[in-house]
Design a protein around this nucleic acid. Sequence first.
DNA 1: ATCAATGCAAATAATTTGCAAAAAG
DNA 2: CTTTTTGCAAATTATTTGCATTGAT
Lengths: 164, 164
Amino acid sequence: MPVAEKSAAESKFAEFLLRKGLRMTAQRRVIVSVVRSTAEHFTAEQLLAWSQRRNRSVSRPTVYRTLSLMNACGLVRAMDLGEAYTFYDPNFADHPNHSHIICEDCGKIIEFDSDRIAKLEDDICRKLGFTAQARRLQITGSCAKFRETGNCPRRARAAPDSNG
Amino acid sequence: MPVAEKSAAESKFAEFLLRKGLRMTAQRRVIVSVVRSTAEHFTAEQLLAWSQRRNRSVSRPTVYRTLSLMNACGLVRAMDLGEAYTFYDPNFADHPNHSHIICEDCGKIIEFDSDRIAKLEDDICRKLGFTAQARRLQITGSCAKFRETGNCPRRARAAPDSNG
DNA sequence: ATCAATGCAAATAATTTGCAAAAAG
DNA sequence: CTTTTTGCAAATTATTTGCATTGAT
């Protein structure tokens, strides 16, 4: 999943705040910037750690509150992976219709787009008189092949660059 | 989604227990029986209430523990609907590949099967050398049409029959 | 000046767990 | 008899919230 025009996504957040009569703050700027600098799926706790690395004043409640705003405006997507905590997908803004394949061996998340699946979903919704607002498709399993080819590093999960 | 051969599903649980060296108890029998008697998606708390109606001795921890076993053996499927609690799908045993359309207006959950979507998923997994173990597709939106035709009762959610 | 946002500490609440008593095989 | 299961009460833990202070506009 290529990282595309994230700055556009960022201004999307600014516009969202404006429209809602909310304010841009130093903390929010840091948090959004950190999210912008990663393509990995992350937890609130990870985001807190990464953000504090850049600005000690970022607190846990602020991370949760900002995450909620970012989710509301479509900059990020809350995902349930069956773990105790919620994961957030930073690629949602650019690829609102992508799906996830989750490797249970290494925890790796692979993203893919399928116009053909989306088309079938549309047909079904139309047939049922249903107006779709969001969709999520997750496939879990094991990537035996990936491990053979070295593409399934165990629990590899990189932190974003500390210079954003 | 028609209710099909649930008794088969029940013996599946018995076999599962046997295979694992676990035991069948009065509480587990009640819980499984209650789950068998509903086609609705439910929460642990609802299942507790329904089960206690039949046998006061069923406790919350036992419901959670049994739900976990049922999920492990495929009798039930844990679902995240963005609420604070987990919903369980009792139709998973009979229709392991069905998808969900969730109406945000009324909370209603509509289930459907699509061989064509499943086929496309298979193709993608094969192409990635990925062995799928489970899949979940959720589409959320609003069922305006349903409400017109009276098929979208607000938060209607029936308790299962109290006679098993 | 306003009114929103922050950090802190405390609260919330679903789910899990330790343990001694009870039941299954 | 041995091992699992149960209910109870307490623990766990991600996420949320009240509140006084700080900061954005």
